[in-house]
């Protein structure tokens, strides 16, 4: 579904990523793990056109989407969930979802909204409430909801567990599985909660110093603690 070939990028003149090759397979959860500052979030931002790709290509369903803007990507089935439960905190829950569904027709918006209320019934109860007043877990749900509104085929998620309590991290992982299995969404997730994400993903990449250091089954990593430790040293 999403293919990244030989991607180089960085900020200003500082190169962060070197020749990254990665694939997110249709219908699967693909995780990217690695130490802080290794370039995981930078990779997602480059794939979503938020920072320029210096070299290499990004493909989505075989079409070249390198350096396409976020509006194009949203309209073509890719959405982005940023770090740390970010919501438009001066706007209501419903208005946040309207932003997610900005490019939908009225009818399609209602259909997507009903699907979302079924997934997150708490949000329905609070749809008129100012989203800045939601709890951490509810903000997380709203952040997912906003990304689900355009009915994407691929969700890019940048450390969605950041700032959540261990109990809420568990709940969030359950939601991810549900979004993947019941809603059929492909997920490419950057995550620091390694043990949790290895439980739910189908394939895992590890990035170290801007390069892919591991690509393979999460099961192998779960069983090889030394390897896992090595990837984070």
């Amino acid at each position: 579904m999403l293919g990244i070939k030989g991607l180089d990028t960085g900020y200003g003149k500082k190169q962060i990523l070197y020749g990254i090759d990665l694939e997110a397979v249709t219908g699967k959860i693909t995780a990217i793990i690695g130490p802080n500052g290794s370039g995981k979030s930078t990779l997602l931002k480059a794939a979503f056109g938020l920072i320029p790709v210096w070299q290499g290509k990004v493909f989505f369903q075989r079409a070249d989407i390198t350096n396409k803007n976020s509006k194009f990507l949203v309209q073509n089935g890719i959405t982005f969930v940023p770090q740390g439960n970010r919501v438009f905190d001066e706007m209501s829950v419903l208005e946040n979802l309207e932003i997610g569904g900005l490019y939908l027709s009225k009818k399609q918006f209602q259909i997507e909204l009903e699907k979302l209320w079924q997934l997150f019934p708490e949000l329905k109860k609070r749809q008129k409430q100012n989203s800045g007043k939601l709890s951490g877990g509810e903000k997380q749900q709203l952040s997912f909801g906003r990304a689900l509104m355009p009915d994407p085929t691929l969700l890019l998620m940048d450390e969605p567990s950041l700032g959540l309590s261990p109990k809420l991290v568990g709940q969030m992982m359950n939601h991810l599985q549900k979004i993947n299995r019941e809603f059929g969404k492909t997920i490419l997730i950057v995550e620091q909660k390694v043990r949790d994400v290895l439980e739910i993903c189908d394939h895992v990449y590890s990035i170290k110093l801007g390069r892919i250091a591991y690509s393979g089954s999460p099961q192998n990593l779960k069983n090889d603690t030394d390897k896992l430790r090595q990837l984070f040293l």
């Binding site: 938020l50 309209q75 959405t79 919501v87 706007m91």
Partner: peptide
């Protein structure tokens, strides 16, 4: 209003 509230998040949500 979304851009006024958080322009970075607005860009991430597909707003030009």
């Amino acid at each position: 209003r979304a851009v006024a509230t958080d322009s970075e998040l607005a860009a991430m949500s597909g707003i030009e």
